[in-house]
Design a binder for these strands. Sequence first.
DNA 1: ATCGGCTCGCGCAA
DNA 2: TGCGCGAAGCCGAT
Length: 465
Amino acid sequence: MTHPARVHIRRDSPENSAGRFVLYWMQQAQRARANPALEEAVRLADERGLPVVVGFGLDEHYPDANLRHFAFMLEGLAETARELEERGIGFVLRRGRPPEVALDLARHARILVCDRGYLRHQRQWRDLVAERAPCPVVEVEGEVVVPVEAASDRAEIGARTLRPKIRRLLDAFLDLPDERGPRRRAAADLETLLDPDDPEALLATLDVDRSVLPVRRFRGGTSEAEARLARFLEERLEGYAEARNDPGRAATSELSPYLHFGQISPVAVAVAVQGSGAGSPQDRAAFLEELVVRRELSCNFTWHVEDYDRFSALPGWARATLSAHAGDPRPALYDIEELEAADTHDPAWNAAMREMRETGYMHNYMRMYWGKKILEWSRSPEEAFATALRLDNRWFLDGRDPNGYAGVAWCFGLHDRPWPERPVFGKVRSMTAAGLARKFDVGAYIRRVDALLRAEDGKQMTEDG
DNA sequence: ATCGGCTCGCGCAA
DNA sequence: TGCGCGAAGCCGAT
């Protein structure tokens, strides 16, 4: 059952008596399963004997989105549309700014239900819809385990201050929504652009940035996400606490692209891991730390810090120390084109950049090293911050996400503490190639990336080599 | 190989 | 008001 704290009445106006259906404006939670917003729409529709229509606004000019993101998203939406169809729920995809698509469909809706996002524009879209809809608007949180405002009313200083607050509430928010049975079809007079059996046809017509190509490594969709979760539980949870930080080993869940597009529910993942017989209690705790504490600390950051995508969002001590060292000589200087081309003197860094560029993903430990080096190799910390964010948002399938903003900012001192003063970094935690080599087999990571790149090229397609 | 020191601010005990 | 301690650090001393 959905926890009542997930549900917010955003507009408390009389129901639209001319409404023919309950509208679920789907934007963030792009899935047909374990979706509390969808199930709330179904419940409201059942009470009124109405059909449910799911509407999605596809914005070709969505901030920083490119062909790679759209290909992954449309694969997922096609599957979601097919699953909704099986439940007798219509799926309508239209081009346009999401709030405009939602408001247009809302003219025929008795009630509008929406989901939730934690970035600036996602909040603005929902504010606009709540302000202008001709019917009640209900917002349902389904993208974090513990809703951000239930967990904390302020910008947390670090994981250590958020962790106890999350822990207290965790069990109450492992709440999967009840799913109701099939229903009668919605009125079929609503035009949609997506053929659920051929998402590529729509992709081909989109006026989007085509300079970033789709990847083979990640196929979009809920069933793919669930297959990865199952593989993680079977093969990777055992030993996760110890292996997760070694970039040379494929020991992580690699679920972040699916979580970013809402193709899998974080609550469903948490429940599956907690209920799994695999791994030790430490392994399960280590994964829940990543999935819940760290991921939701990122949402706390973008929710409470207005300028989360700028240098000014960093804590005062970090800004002060980085500025004090802005004039230090750099061991190397690269511009954004050289970085993007993975053309530096550092083989481990280059491998990380290629993993990002060619496969849309990077091992989490390398994300830290990658960002720390951009700080070290740029003319100023402000420029480094902007460069890291640009690359993050452009190449990652899970970019343009609270985790991306918090992850980049962490490299510049966010959610961290001061460390001994060093050139360029000041008191911000540094990382070095020597440290990387001390802890891990860097060659193993480089070889693993080489294999991933060959798979992208299609030169090595067999599973067992 | 392991250990302490580096540094700031929160949260809790006193 | 004092004290412990923290996402993954580094370095130099044992």
